[in-house]
Amino acid sequence: MIDCSGAGSSAPAHASGLAIETTALTKRFGRQTVVDGLALSVPRGSVFGFLGPNGSGKTTTIRMLLGLAQASGGEISVLGERMPQKLGSVLPRVGALIEGPGFSPFLSGSANLRRLDSADGFAPNGTRSARVSRALDRVGLGHAADKKVRAYSLGMKQRLGIANALLAPRDLIVLDEPTNGLDPQGTREVRSLIRSLADEGTTVFVSSHLLAEIEQMCTHAAVMRAGRLVAQGTLDELRSAGTTRVIVTTPDADAAAQVLRTLGLDPGHPDAPGAAVTATLPESIEPEDIVAALVNAGVRVRGFAVDHASLEDLFVALTGEGFDVVQ
């Protein structure tokens, strides 16, 4: 695979550094506001995780980005162009998998892809077959190209959907829940596919309700909750927004807790003697000072750890415990 860096892609010169930008993007269905004042900034060349519980408005946002649904308010620009005004020139540069695959069951996988490719006015007819078979090979469906989609498993359909997004050279690929229905092997393949796309300089916008997925693949992420954006940035920025904890493993739990309190930390009350004592670490205190204080106080320290909060903690904190559908 040719590795062309992000700068080498066919981005227009006037384009900003953002592949997707929305301001105050809002969608209402009747009285219900599904997306509320969204301000997304997806940098070019990033692998951008779009995170949120089911029903938080991710798919509706993606539909608006791709011109399938009309925004009730706000503005969208994709690849530096206003949407949906420039739909016809922007979408050929965008590959998409939206809320699961959709194919004609009575056609074979390759016939489905050829059909969708012929719908793209900028796709040359001459290379269609070659591009279709390459896209199928790339998602590991080369063997099932001529099988009717009716006979595909859910995972195979999902791969076919991803293959559709790869039919033409793209500047942006939008993947809505790409690993749905895939087995662990398939999930790994998709992950490596996304990485290779990113290596080619393609901006990848991945939505998921699974945090681990985002954490493993993405450079950037945004978190949605009930139609609102609650966090956005690089993964490091997001992680640093979370808290750091110290974890002291000791048989002298009460004594350790006492030491921590004198340092100004709040360990709470240990659950049981012998359990770990934990406390949030303020930025003003260095971890080594705590260890020194504990040792000086005669606490038998068996283990000491500084734990940066996982994105999962952040995700739970931001979206509430519920991975349930937010109404």
Binding site: G67, L91, A96, I98, E99, A119
Partner: peptide, 8 residues
């Protein structure tokens, strides 16, 4: 939706 984002 796929036809429309192809885009036709």
């Amino acid at each position: 939706r796929y036809l429309l984002v192809s885009p036709v």
